[in-house]
Amino acid sequence: MIQLENVTKTYPRATRPSLEGASAFIEKGEFVFFIGPTGSGKTTIIRLLLREETPTSGRVVVNGRDVANMHSWKVPAFRRSIGCVFQDFRLLPNRTAAENVAFALEVIGKSRTVARRVVPEVLELVGLGGKENRYPHQLSGGEQQRVAIARAFVNRPLVLLADEPTGNLDPDTSIEIMRLLDRINRTGTTIVMVTHDSNIVNQMRRRVIEIDTGRIVRDQPRGVYG
């Protein structure tokens, strides 16, 4: 469950707010696209939901927790309930696919035994069975993004945030990644995806929230890019 209540975010020294009076309610298990041109404020939404930023005014509630008023020492525990993938994958180049996923488990204190059990499972789930020991440079872009998705999903988060996950991928690979995200969505995980890839939005036919210069201009169930 994600709730934006009249959210405004103005970055220091910015001439206009990146997000202005944005309100939206996203149910548990929904799949939502945030679309809009570059600089419209889409990424700001991801940063707010991740609590990398706090809103200038308004309320942001994720998984029942008020993000704006959260103490900074509570942020790590909060982030464990959220998965996140990016356009640039953000993998560690000197670790294999399995090690990249295991790293995310180890640094939040999961034992190696747990990692040994869970990592092959999730890699299998994202379709990388047999490629566990490849390094990122030995994998294609689509495969690297699958590793990133495996890492984001390995903790079974309630919410998965995706910031232009197909931005670096060709159309066919993009479709495959979307199929994967769709499968993850079917397990009950809420997915919030920021994109300006019109093909994908039009094919998926999911809820679309359009942002233009910081304002929500359209919120449409089963929408298209428009």
Binding site: L50, V75, R90, F103, A104, V107, I108, G109
Partner: peptide, 17 residues
Amino acid sequence: RREVGIMKLVGASNWFI
């Protein structure tokens, strides 16, 4: 910075980082 960024993203505690 890469490791630190990922650790923060997946919710490693501050002391651990």
